[in-house]
Design a protein around this nucleic acid. Structure first.
Lengths: 115, 115
DNA sequence: GCCATGGTCAACCGTTCGGTTGAGAATGCC
DNA sequence: GGCATTCTCAACCGAACGGTTGACCATGGC
C-alpha cells in the first residue's frame, strides 16, 4: 500500500501505534521485543506494525528469523508539511514536545470536559 | 469531548475533513455552505464538523439560525509538536506544502503500489 | 400565524477496526 | 532430524465509522 495522508494520520490516531513509534525512536527492535510491553497478543502488535509500515512510518527488514523494525521519520515529514499550512507554527518547542509525550505515555485522554 | 492526539489524528485521517479544513483556511463558513461542494447529505457533513470540533480543530458558533465554523489551528499545533520529536524537520518547506495540498485536493490516494 | 431555511437527532446499514485464537511457515540450534 | 523460536495468516467477534433517510427543532421573513 502506498503511504497517503489518509494512511499516515490513521496510523497515528492509535495510542498503541504512537507508543511503538516512541519506542523505535531509541533503537531498531524485533517484532517480539516491540510486543513485549503491551498487554495484547503478538499477532495484534504484528498487525499494528503492518499498518505503520503501510503508512511508511516504519520499515521492516527480515534478517534470519528476526524481523527488525526501523523508524522512518520521512513519512511524518509529509504529514507535518501538510499541517504547517494551518498555523504558521513557531519553530520546534521541545519543552512542549516532552510535555505531550509524557502525557501520552502515562495514559492520555483524561482531561476535563469541554462544551 | 476533550481533544487528544487520538481524536486529532483520527479527525485528520479523513479526506473530507481535511478538505473542510482547507476550505476554512480561507474564511469562516456556515454549515450549509461547507456542505455544498460535497456529494453527500448535509447530515453527513454536520457529523464531520462535530468530529472536527471534538478534536478542537474548529469551533462552531451559532448566530441566529446559522452556525458558523471557524478554523482553530492551535489543536494542530499540539499534534505538530508531537510529530516534531520524530525527525528534526527542517523549517517549513512551502513548495512541498503546496505540492501535497495539490495532490490532496485533486483526489489523493492514487499512486503506484509499493512493496 | 405561517412557511421556508438551517441544522441536528435517531435509527438504520454495510464496512472497517482492533482485538482474539489456532494453525502453520520459516529459521536457528543441537 | 527434531525441537524451540519468530512471526504471519485466516477466521472470527464486537465496536466504531461513514454514510443514508426521515422526523424534528429553532429561527427569520412576510
Amino acid at each position: 500500500m502506498a503511504p497517503t495522508l489518509d494512511t499516515i494520520f490513521a496510523a497515528l490516531s492509535d495510542p498503541t501505534r504512537r507508543a511503538i513509534l516512541s519506542m523505535l525512536l531509541e533503537d531498531d527492535m524485533a517484532v517480539t521485543d516491540v510486543a513485549e510491553p503491551f498487554e495484547m497478543s503478538l499477532a495484534a502488535v504484528s498487525k499494528h506494525l503492518v499498518i505503520l509500515a503501510n503508512a511508511g512510518l516504519i520499515t521492516q527488514e527480515k534478517r534470519g528469523r528476526v524481523k527488525w523494525c526501523k523508524l522512518e521519520p520521512d513519512a511524518l515529514r509529509e504529514a507535518s508539511v501538510w499541517m504547517q499550512g494551518f498555523g504558521q507554527f513557531e519553530p520546534v518547542n521541545l519543552d512542549a514536545f516532552e510535555r505531550f509525550l509524557a502525557v501520552e505515555l502515562s495514559d492520555a485522554g483524561h482531561r476535563e470536559e469541554e462544551e
